[in-house]
């Protein structure tokens, strides 16, 4: 057991727990943040993605110990922002959401990408989404959504 302090969706949290728990389990089980999903549990699919210090990470492959003093934003926290609104509207407009299981992760990946590179070209978008598996869409409509978001969110990133 150890005390782990970190910022979660804007609030400081301190947990006294086993640092060898996966961040994903802590988010889902301790904070009831079920937006991050478990698709594979081995870092491959991105359904569990969250932002750690503004960058995308797969919460199933991050031990809680590594979250010490970091800032975590889950889809629940991110969904309160203007950037989210733009991304969500673009996903809707492009038709990038089917079963939705990959969607929170895709949106986190989009944010992480646009935060670093507000005007990505198609290839850069593909790289940005390359760790997020989607079995429903075939990706084109998601790529389209990211393009739309980059345009519509001009100035936000």
């Amino acid at each position: 057991m150890a005390k782990i302090k970190f910022k979660l969706n804007g609030e400081i949290k301190e947990l006294d727990t086993d640092p060898s728990r996966r961040l994903l389990d802590v988010l889902r089980d301790d904070f009831n943040l079920t937006g991050p999903k478990e698709g594979c549990g081995e870092g491959e699919c991105g359904a569990c993605a969250v932002l750690m210090n503004k960058e995308i990470v797969n919460s199933c492959s991050v031990p809680l110990a590594n979250v010490l003093n970091k800032e975590i934003i889950t889809i629940e926290g991110f969904s309160k922002t203007k950037r989210y609104q733009v991304i969500k509207d673009s996903f809707a407009k492009a038709g990038g959401v089917q079963c939705g299981f990959c969607t929170p992760g895709m949106i986190i990946a989009t944010e992480s990408l646009l935060n670093k590179n507000p005007h990505p070209n198609e290839f850069e978008i593909k790289i940005g989404l390359s760790g997020n598996l989607c079995r429903c869409t075939g990706y084109n409509l998601i790529i389209e959504a990211v393009k739309l978001a980059a345009e519509a969110g001009e100035g936000l990133w």
Partner: peptide, 9 residues
């Protein structure tokens, strides 16, 4: 290697 999410950690 891997993907952006993995490369970040």
């Amino acid at each position: 290697m891997a993907s952006p999410a993995i490369r970040h950690t």
